[in-house]
Design a protein around this nucleic acid. Structure first.
Length: 929
RNA sequence: GCGAGCGUAGCUCAGCGGCAGAGCACGCCCUUCACACGGGCGGGGUCACAGGUUCAAUCCCUGUCGCUCGCACCA
């Protein structure tokens, strides 16, 4: 190669530097409409649609987002390249409580109100607060969209939706009204979860149990007779029941004490009255099978207003409901002297008073679970309150059935069981929230007749009494955020309108999300989708693992172990991060992310980069030829028989790769695809084919032509295969290739719209694979000799060889020059079979191909060292032989195992034994010399 | 308590009936003209433990231990 050629600038930089091209490429795609789906498919085209799990507008991109968006983008880019009319629909969620908390915080920091308190939403009023929140959304809610762009997400931004935009709000009202009309939404007074900090009702799902250290207090409840006086036992002591509780302050709301009906200790007291400590109210002793005889004293205080189980007991026995715990976090007037006290203070006072009254028997430490608010972590209190509910059973039934009969398939399938369990035990869904940020409930109350009107728009007059609209007051509550997300797969496509997009893309193809929101989101979409569309919202649910840190801990700000995807992208690029995430997205539960892995895949990008750079050098050295008229792929297929063996081999391997990658993509085993791509690129293309190609290029004009065409074809195909995983670097490299076609009539040249490769059976050539395998075996054997003896690469040496078959002779004659150059052999000399090895020769016996190598160790390595190497080899083979012989020695194996296998083992036994004997001879000879 | 998942090389993970694999880390040799984000060679594992099924078990079954995660909680 002349100096000029060597320094001729080629289009690629010296190494992989993602920061130089990523943002430009994304802009190129977006500006050219590469992400756009068509409302209608062209004939013969399939639709493919994924709706993004809408990130909260409060959110900033974290590794969970990075993982889910990588997976989705891979699937989407793959299907798009396959030719599907592909829609990946972006959007964000208004995230009711989360957002309101953020804006309230901002407000509080802004100043103080007239009474010196930090500003609250109540100081500025609902309208102003909602307006501010919209403003906040405009300012902060866009951040994550830019971050998704940096990940390379090929989202159709023109179709972006927001759960509170006009269309989706209309969908929410439509659903609410219809469910109400069908009797599936009702308003009623029930026990619900109440967050005293957020001042709102919560659904069961929004309450998370947390381990708390607490106490178990044992309190005396005295039994009184009909005269109102304490009953006395025959021995004169007071008749009483000791009750254990973790929440003594709730006794203010007790309306009964319950025992098990079969509990002999209390049978005589059934129907008697007890005196409620401190307040003195009389409450009955009731018998209910819910009570566990073995636990505590076997008696349970019943507080229907503040405990879900007690509420049920109360309903069964017609007990009154006494709400002692107020929504404001203070004891109500029902608490007598304790009213107005905060719950924590009330607890102290109650305990103190009990103690003074001799009613507190003892207290024990007690570990128990306390429900806290998912958003603010403060203790959630069950209270009885008037709220809106969805009657869920009628919706759950069809949703269960859809998964049972396979219309929806979960991957990993084990999640189906989790889904079934929750769905069959589902309770009515409390959907009203006492917040300001969200969809206001479309219900209006008549100020005149008190009737409620549920409607899509504000009623002009009361439908019942005809009072004017001005007297109708809209319900102040808003809906649970998940109510609108539950409609996402169809509301985003234009429902309740009958749009073409809806027709084309519903049901969507795949729902890809985290398992932590199966109940919150997946289940509700299934219920709503089936109910309103008459069809499941998606056919497949793929639930990915949770991203954790390298130690397996959840990433969180407080732990300080958060790996920010944007920092990783800044440092290494989006492609290495994406490849890492896909390579680790096995079907387990956790993805333990380590930065070392990312660095490894960055090196992979660099390797790929340099492989392409290598192609450019060769291409230019070959005089920058034109692509064969019929195209490189077709040319290779036509000339497949006369190609050189390494060319045939790499083309053959490429077909296997295509099949493997496709299989992984189709089965949600992206890690398999990623691994296959990595192995092929590094260990087949770079380690071997490129090395072969260097030799071929030296050989002559024809060989060089074949090689350049093969190299171009393999690299071009590989870039297409890799593209869904690493979109940026593949596009950048692909653009640099000399032979490429426009994918569109308009002439837009982009890799992302090229067809995805399909496996070509004609290019699979087993013989070539065997030949190359044999070449590698010989080269590896010499390299092993060299490496084990620490012989420098520049120190080349002659090797003699003996062929044990005529085929082997032919083989070495044909490929000896490749073996020579790849193994760093100065001269490869054939020796007649049967001739004895020279005394200073070390023998390397091979079986496939049947060749014996003889290396004169003189001047290379001393006999002792080489003998050590041979002994190690002998030991290794001996352990194999022992294993094989052990198998063959068992009669049962020979008799019952497949004959083919037995035959194979016998052959192996022979080969191994022979190898050992040859190596032993060699070692003996060297020892003598 | 019920259910699920996981225990494989120092680390992170593949494999899931027929000789234990990868990446990183480690040791040795190489600044060979795509790549030191590199090349070559190597060391390293009773596949958690105990039984069982099988000619054959890391893989299938049962149990034990350890670690996660759901669900339900006994107040």
């Amino acid at each position: 190669m002349s100096k000029e050629q060597q320094f001729k600038p080629h289009p690629l930089g010296r190494s992989f530097e993602p920061e130089t091209f990523e943002s430009g490429i994304y802009r190129f795609w977006e500006e050219n409409g590469c992400f756009d789906a068509k409302d209608a498919c062209i004939p013969g085209q399939d639709p493919f649609c994924i709706v993004i799990p809408p990130p909260n507008i409060t959110g900033v991109l974290h590794m969970g987002h990075a993982l889910t968006n990588t997976i989705q983008d891979i699937l989407v880019r793959w299907r798009r390249m396959k030719g599907d009319n592909t829609l990946w629909l972006p959007g964000t969620d208004h995230a009711g409580i989360a957002t309101q908390i953020q804006v309230e915080k901002a407000l509080a920091q802004e100043g103080k109100n007239s009474s010196g308190q930090p500003l609250s939403r109540h100081d500025i009023g609902r309208e102003a607060f909602v307006e501010r929140t919209w403003k906040w959304k405009d300012e902060h809610g866009g951040k994550i969209k830019e971050q998704l762009r940096r990940m390379g997400s090929s989202l159709d931004w023109k179709r972006e939706r927001f759960t509170m935009d006009d269309g989706l709000s209309a969908a929410v009202r439509e659903v609410f009204v219809r469910l109400y009309d069908e009797g599936l939404i009702y308003r009623g007074e029930r026990i619900i979860n109440w967050c005293t900090r957020c001042q709102t009702a919560l659904s069961d799902l929004e309450v998370v149990p947390r381990d708390r250290k607490g106490n178990f207090w044992h309190i005396v409840y005295k039994v009184v007779g009909d005269d109102g006086k304490t009953l006395r036992r025959p021995d004169g002591t007071e008749e009483q029941i000791v009750i254990a509780t973790t929440r003594p302050e709730t006794l203010l709301g007790d309306t009964a004490v319950a025992v098990h009906p079969d509990d002999g200790r209390y049978t005589h007291l059934h129907g008697k009255q007890l005196q409620l400590p401190l307040l003195g109210r009389l409450i009955p002793l009731i018998a209910d099978a819910y009570v566990d005889k073995e636990f505590g004293s076997g008696a349970l205080k019943v507080t229907p207003a503040h405990d879900f189980n007690d509420y049920e007991i109360g309903k069964r026995h017609g007990l009154p409901i006494v709400s002692a715990m107020g929504k404001d976090g203070r004891i109500t007037s029902a608490g007598g002297p304790y009213s107005g006290l905060r719950f924590t203070v009330a607890r102290e006072r109650v305990l103190q008073d009990l103690k003074e009254g001799g009613l507190l028997v003892r207290s024990e430490d007690h570990q128990h679970k306390v429900g806290v608010c998912q958003r603010c972590e403060s203790v959630v209190e069950p209270v009885v309150s008037k709220q809106w509910f969805v009657k869920i059973q009628p919706l759950a039934g069809p949703a269960i059935k859809a998964v049972q009969d396979g219309r929806i398939v979960f991957t990993p399938q084990s999640w189906e069981k989790v889904y079934f369990e929750w769905m069959t035990n589902i309770r009515d869904w409390c959907i009203s929230r006492q917040l300001w940020w969200g969809h206001q409930i479309p219900a209006w109350y008549c100020g005149r007749c008190q009737d409620v009107a549920v409607a899509r728009t504000a009623p002009g007059k009361c439908p019942k009494c005809g009072a004017p609209g001005a007297e109708m007051r809209q319900d102040e509550d808003v809906l649970d955020t998940w109510f609108s997300s539950g409609l996402w797969p169809f509301s985003t496509l234009g429902w309740p309108g009958k749009t073409q997009a809806l027709k084309t893309f519903y049901p969507t193809s795949i729902m890809e999300t985290g398992f932590d929101i199966i109940f919150f989101w997946v289940a509700r979409m299934i219920m709503m989708g089936i109910h309103f569309m008459g069809e499941v919202p998606f056919k497949k649910v793929y639930l990915h693992a949770m991203v954790r840190d390298e130690k397996g801990e959840k990433m969180s700000k407080s732990r300080g172990n958060v790996i920010d995807p944007l920092v990783v992208i800044d440092k290494h690029g989006a492609d290495p991060l994406r490849f890492t995430l896909s390579a680790m997205s096995g079907q387990g539960r956790d993805v333990k992310l380590s930065l070392e892995r990312v660095e490894g895949y960055r090196a992979f990008c660099n390797k790929l980069w340099n492989a392409v750079k290598f192609f450019h050098l060769q291409y230019e050295a070959a005089g920058s030829p034109d692509e064969p008229r019929e195209g490189a792929g077709t040319w290779l297929q036509h000339h497949r028989v006369e190609l050189l063996e390494p060319d045939k081999w790499i083309l053959s391997r490429l077909q296997t790769l295509v099949a493997r990658v496709e299989k992984g993509l189709a089965g949600f085993e992206l890690n398999d695809s990623a691994q296959a791509l990595y192995e092929f690129t590094w260990h087949e293309l770079c380690d071997w084919y490129i090395e072969f190609s260097k030799l071929q290029i030296k050989d002559g004009v024809e060989e060089r032509k074949e090689t350049v065409i093969t190299l171009h074809h393999v690299i071009e195909t590989l870039l297409r295969l890799l593209h869904p995983f690493m979109p940026f670097v593949t596009e950048e490299l692909w653009q640099s290739l000399p032979w490429k076609k426009s994918a569109r009539p308009g002439g837009l040249v982009t890799l992302m719209l090229q067809p995805f490769p399909s496996s070509n059976g004609k290019l699979i050539q087993q013989d070539a694979e065997k030949t190359v395998c044999a070449i590698r075996t010989v080269v590896d054997a010499v390299r092993n000799f060299r490496g084990e003896n620490s012989i420098a690469p520049k120190n080349s040496f002659p090797v003699k060889y003996v062929c044990k078959s005529s085929a082997a002779s032919v083989f070495v004659r044909a490929y000896g020059h490749m073996i020579r150059d790849l193994a760093g052999i100065s001269e490869l000399v054939q020796v007649e079979d049967g001739s004895a090895a020279a005394s200073g020769d070390s023998v390397v016996p091979l079986t496939q191909p049947p060749v014996e190598l003889r290396i004169s160790i003189k001047g290379l390595v001393n006999a002792e060292e080489e003998t050590k190497r041979i002994c190690k080899e002998i030991e290794r083979i001996q352990s194999d032989l022992k294993h094989v012989r052990g198998k063959l020695a068992k009669e049962s194996f020979v008799a019952k195992a497949p004959a083919e296998l037995v035959q194979k083992e016998r052959q192996r036994e022979q080969e191994l034994a022979q190898k050992i004997s040859e190596l032993e001879q060699s070692a003996r000879r060297l020892g003598k010399g």
